Simulated scan of single mutants.
Amino acid sequence: MTERVSIRDVAAAAEVSIGTVSRVLNGSGYASQAVRQRVQQAIARLGYEPDFTARHLRTGHSRTIGYLLPNIANPFLAIHLAEVEKLAQGAGYSLFIGSSERPARDKELVAFFENRRLEGIIASPSHEYEDPKSSPFGTTSLPTVIVDRDLGPGFDSVLVDHCQGMRKVMEYLLALGHRRVALFASGPRLRPGREKLRGYRAALEDAGFAFDERLVHLSESWLESSREPMRRMLRLEAPPTAIIAVGTQLLSGAVHVVREAGMDIPRDMSVVGIGTLETLELMYPPVTALRYNFHQSASAAVQLILQRIEKVAPPHARTVVIQSDLILGASCGAV
C-alpha cells in the first residue's frame, strides 16, 4: 500500500516549515509569491491531498461549500457552476458538487453536506416545495443560498428577472410587426418557466393582442426536442412569424423544422435565442439573444453565502435580482 503523502513531506520538498505549507493551503497569513509557488509545485509533484477532516478538527472550518444542481450536463447550469467555482476558489473555498433531480435526493445531499461539515450550500434544486420551511433547505443549519427558484421569502436568493427579459424580447418583436410569436421554454413547475410565460403574456396584453396557447410549448426537460410542436405550429391557419426559444434542443429543434420547411431566417421567420452567447454562437445567421448574466448571478450567490459563513450578513433574508441583456444579431426582421 502506498503511504499517504503528509504535510511534513510537502514542507521538506518545498524547503519551508510546516506552518508555511499550512498558511498556503488555508489561504491565511503571509507567504511570498515565490514561496507559495514552491509549495504548490511540491503539492503537485508529490500528489498531496489535504485531510479535510483533520483540518476541520484543527481549525473549525472546512472552507468547503456544497453546490446542489439538477443536472451538470445542462449547459446553462454548467456555465453557472464554473463561475461559482472560480469565485469560491478565489476566496479560498473549495466546492463540493451534488446532482439531484428528486426531493429524496435533495434530502440525502443536504445530509451529506452536513456530515462532511461543509460550511454552506448554494442550491438550484429541480423541485420547488409546497412548504419550503419543511424542505431540506429550510431545516438545515447550514447557511443556504437559493438560485433561480421560488422557495419562499425565508432564503437568501439570487433570481434572474425572466419576466422582464421576456418583455424586452416581445416588445422588440412586436415593434417589428410580429403578432404571432412561438415560445419554447422550460416548464411551469419551476420559476424560470413561469416567469417567462408571465412576461410573454403581459407584453401581448399591454399591446392589445390575444394570447394563443397553441403558440406556447413549455418543456419539462432541457433535452426535449421541439420539432413536433414546431411542425404543429406551422400547420396552423395563422402560423407564427417569430420564435423565442431557450438555447438548447428547444431552439435547435424549432430552427431545424423551419429550415426543413424551406423557410429562411430572418426573411420568413425571426428567431430569438435565450441563454449565453457561448451556447448560441454556432447558429447562422448570428442569433438575436436574450443573454443570461451568469457571472453576475454567480458573483451574487458567492457573496451572499460567504457573508453568511463569515457571520457578517444581516439577520433578514436577502434577494438579488439579475437582469438579462437583449443582444441584437441578424436573425430577426420585419414581418
Rank of each mutant, 00 (worst) to 15 (best):
M1S: 14
M1I: 04
S6P: 03
R8W: 13
V10H: 05
E15R: 15
V16Q: 11
V16L: 10
S17Q: 11
T20G: 06
T20Y: 09
V24W: 01
L25S: 10
G29D: 05
G29F: 12
R38N: 10
R38C: 08
V39Q: 09
Q40S: 08
A44I: 02
G47C: 05
Y48A: 11
P50D: 05
D51M: 13
A54Y: 08
A54Q: 07
R55Q: 15
R55F: 01
L57A: 01
T59P: 02
T59G: 11
H61G: 04
H61N: 12
H61L: 14
S62M: 07
I65S: 10
I65W: 07
P75A: 10
L77A: 11
L81M: 13
E83G: 03
E83D: 14
E85M: 05
E85P: 00
K86P: 01
L87A: 14
L87R: 15
G90E: 07
A91Y: 04
Y93T: 11
Y93W: 02
S94P: 01
S100Y: 03
E101N: 08
E101K: 12
A104N: 13
R105I: 08
K107C: 04
L109F: 06
E114H: 07
R117I: 01
S124R: 12
S126W: 04
H127C: 12
Y129K: 02
P132S: 02
S134V: 13
F137S: 08
F137K: 08
T140H: 08
L142P: 11
P143Y: 03
P143C: 05
V147R: 01
L151E: 15
G152M: 09
P153Q: 04
G154Q: 14
S157M: 09
L159C: 06
V160T: 15
H162V: 10
H162L: 00
C163G: 10
M166I: 09
V169Y: 04
V169T: 04
V169P: 01
Y172G: 02
Y172E: 14
A175K: 05
R179N: 09
V181P: 11
R201V: 11
A203E: 07
A203K: 00
E205I: 06
E205D: 15
D206V: 10
A210E: 14
D212R: 06
E213G: 11
H217G: 10
S219I: 11
S221H: 00
W222F: 13
S226E: 05
R227D: 13
R227E: 15
P229N: 04
P229K: 05
P229G: 08
R232F: 13
R235S: 15
P239Y: 10
T241P: 07
T241N: 00
L250T: 01
A254C: 01
H256C: 11
V257Y: 11
V257Q: 03
V258E: 01
E260C: 03
V271K: 00
G273L: 09
I274Q: 12
G275M: 06
T279H: 11
L282F: 15
Y284F: 13
P285G: 09
L290I: 14
S297W: 04
Q303L: 09
L304S: 09
I305C: 02
A317Y: 03
V320L: 12
V320F: 06
I322A: 05
L328F: 10
